[in-house]
Nucleic acid binder design. Structure first.
Length: 295
DNA sequence: CGATTTTGACCCGCGC
DNA sequence: GCGCGGGTCAAAATCG
């Protein structure tokens, strides 16, 4: 509501999905410390090129063509764990068009996979109306009758070493004046958190469609406030209500070493008709995201 | 009045 | 074991 956080439907954005976040994050045990993430999961640049072609925001949402589950992330996370992968990237079209070729994506299995199930059950089990106060009181009064278990986050014992699974994620960086970019789907905000090392908060959204468990996080880059980072998690189980048309090929962007190079794009002109009064999508900036964060 | 956002509290996993 | 930080919940507030 307040200001620009409010939703801005009606304009289109084209993004480059670029980051993948392995859902089943390999346990990063001390020893390896935080830095271990890279080695265990990271891909070579060449892999990235192959697996993560440019595609648009909506393209991703609709088709999920990238096997981003194996991609690894590096993001503007100041932590030592993160890193940018170097390499050149060619703009290219979406892998999975409407050719019916089922793209290989972690999500193709997700709908029925334990990956999702696990996570959902956890959350679902906890979904119970209850007064916050009571919860606390119950807790302290040790009054925990059966009701308590219901909303306990962890009421399902996991196997040894088993971690709560998270869906693959993919992130887009977009230069935009608005935080919440229109992507054709309807989202409901369910949380907001301050981001460490960043003056900008991170917002959490969930797709409003029933049975659709897709979530997304939206945050502004602390390095470049004009850049909005949108991270999607999961795969829509329905079509976009807005039926937004896919974007034209993105501009050329490339990496050199660990530097992201960004070339002026012809897309800027597109932004004119995309903005629709909601903020201007000025450009697209692909980046690698890191997400082997805790949890 | 239903849908959505706000916001503080809570839970969980990880690192120290 | 403790503290930190990410992620989520849900009551209250706000919007359309």
């Amino acid at each position: 509501m307040s200001g620009d956080e409010a939703d801005h439907h009606g304009h289109r954005h084209d993004h480059f999905p670029f980051h993948g976040e392995p859902s089943s994050m390999s346990p990063q045990k001390p020893g390896g410390g935080s830095s271990s993430s890279g080695a265990a999961n990271s891909l070579q640049v060449s892999d990235l090129k192959t697996l993560s072609p440019f595609l648009s925001f909506t393209n991703y949402l609709h088709d999920s063509p990238v096997d981003y589950g194996v991609l690894v992330p590096a993001f503007d996370d100041p932590s030592p764990r993160s890193h940018l992968l170097g390499g050149a990237h060619e703009p290219c079209e979406l892998l999975a068009g409407g050719d019916g070729k089922a793209p290989v994506t972690p999500n193709s299995s997700m709908t029925s996979s334990s990956t999702e199930a696990a996570g959902e059950e956890d959350l679902g089990a906890r979904k119970t109306d209850r007064p916050k106060q009571e919860e606390g009181e119950e807790k302290q009064a040790a009054g925990g009758e059966e009701g308590r278990d219901k909303f306990k986050k962890v009421n399902k014992p996991r196997k040894k070493g088993e971690r709560r699974q998270r869906e693959p994620r993919i992130a887009f960086m977009t230069k935009s004046e608005v935080d919440h970019l229109e992507d054709g789907y309807r989202w409901r905000k369910y949380g907001q958190k301050a981001v460490k090392n960043s003056p900008y908060p991170r917002s959490y959204y969930r797709c409003t469609a029933p049975k659709c468990n897709v979530k997304k996080r939206v945050e502004r880059s602390y390095q470049d406030s004009s850049v909005v980072v949108t991270t999607y998690e999961g795969q829509h189980t329905h079509h976009s209500p807005a039926n937004i048309r896919l974007a034209p090929p993105p501009p050329t962007t490339s990496f050199r070493g660990d530097q992201l190079l960004h070339q002026p794009s012809p897309m800027s002109s597109n932004s004119n008709h995309q903005a629709e009064g909601h903020g201007l999508l000025q450009d697209i900036v692909p980046t690698l995201i890191h997400s082997n964060q805790r949890q």
